[in-house]
Simulated assay, not measured.
Amino acid sequence: MSLETVVEDVRDEARARAEEIREAGESRAEEIISEAEADAEEIVEQREQEVQTQIDEEREQALSSAKLTAKQKRLEARRDVLERVREQLEERVAEIDGERREELTRSLLDAAAEEFDDDADVEVYGRESDEAMLTDLLSEYEGWSFAGTEDCLGGVVVESESSRVSVDNTFDSVIAEVWDEELKRISERLFEE
């Protein structure tokens, strides 16, 4: 074998080996590119899911916030309506006059009388414009006297030093008690819940 043949064989082997290395390199490069593309697609999908999740969460938060705001506005409107209803009720009660006012005041005095001993000295306070009516009504109660005015819609505040009892039977207190007891029904009727 001549030197030229050996050189040629070595060159052929080197070319073949270089071709194998090149093919292996291209194959590995394709694998790397394929893996990188797959990783990139996975990252894109993951980011898209994260963005969609964030969008959904923000949408839900915005919806919840809007619902809460609407509920608060509804409650404020209902509270305003209930306040107006109560104000109108108080105005109507304050306007009661004549025999009806006297009848209601007598009922409140009778209810208060049950809290005091028969021989107690009792002081009665009432609305300034009701003084004459109260003085007339109190003539029916022994030991009872008109003691002064009370800032109220009507009715009476009855007190006795000797028995240390004070009874608030004003129209205001009756309205407050009935209002508290009936608020749910009033709301249901007004707002048809």
Rank of each mutant, 00 (worst) to 15 (best):
D97R: 13
E76R: 15
V167H: 14
V156M: 10
G98R: 05
R164K: 13
E50N: 11
K71H: 15
D110R: 00
G143K: 07
E131L: 02
T149N: 13
S162W: 12
L89W: 01
N169C: 12
G98V: 05
G126K: 06
R79I: 08
R106G: 02
E83C: 06
L138I: 03
S162D: 15
D110V: 07
I55R: 02
V44Q: 01
K73H: 06
E48I: 05
E114H: 04
E161R: 04
D80K: 14
D130F: 04
A62Y: 07
E161H: 08
R59M: 01
F171I: 01
S139Y: 02
S163P: 09
G154N: 13
R164V: 00
Y141S: 12
S145D: 10
D151M: 04
F146A: 03
E161P: 01
L109P: 04
G126M: 11
L68H: 09
R86C: 09
S160Q: 08
W144L: 14
V85Y: 11
A132H: 07
D168G: 11
A77R: 15
S107Y: 12
V165M: 11
E99Q: 07
Q49P: 01
I96H: 00
S64R: 15
S65P: 08
E114Q: 12
L138P: 04
R84A: 05
A147S: 14
F171G: 00
E128I: 02
D118I: 12
G155W: 10
S139R: 02
R84N: 05
F146H: 08
V81W: 02
T53H: 03
E142N: 15
A132P: 06
S162Y: 11
A40M: 10
S160C: 02
L63A: 08
R101E: 03
W144D: 11
S129Y: 05
D118G: 06
T170A: 10
I43M: 13
Q88S: 14
L89I: 14
E114M: 09
G126V: 02
R79S: 13
Y125P: 04
T53E: 15
L68V: 10
V124Q: 07
L68P: 03
L68K: 09
R74E: 09
T105Q: 09
R74M: 12
A77P: 02
D168H: 04
E140W: 13
S145H: 07
S166C: 14
T135F: 02
V157G: 04
S166T: 15
V81T: 08
E114W: 07
L138C: 04
S145Y: 11
E58P: 03
E103V: 06
V124D: 04
R164D: 15
T135P: 01
L137R: 01
A120R: 06
V93H: 07
A112I: 00
T105I: 03
T135S: 13
V122G: 00
N169V: 05
K67Q: 13
L89H: 04
V44F: 11
E150I: 13
M133Y: 01
G98D: 00
R164Q: 15
E140R: 15
V158R: 03
S139N: 11
G143D: 03
Q61I: 09
D151A: 09
L134Q: 00
A40G: 14
E58Q: 07
T135C: 01
L104E: 00
E45L: 14
A40D: 13
E76V: 00
L63V: 10
K71S: 05
E103M: 04
Q46C: 05
L63Y: 08
S162F: 07
Q54L: 14
Q54A: 12
A70V: 05
G155V: 08
Q52C: 01
D168I: 00
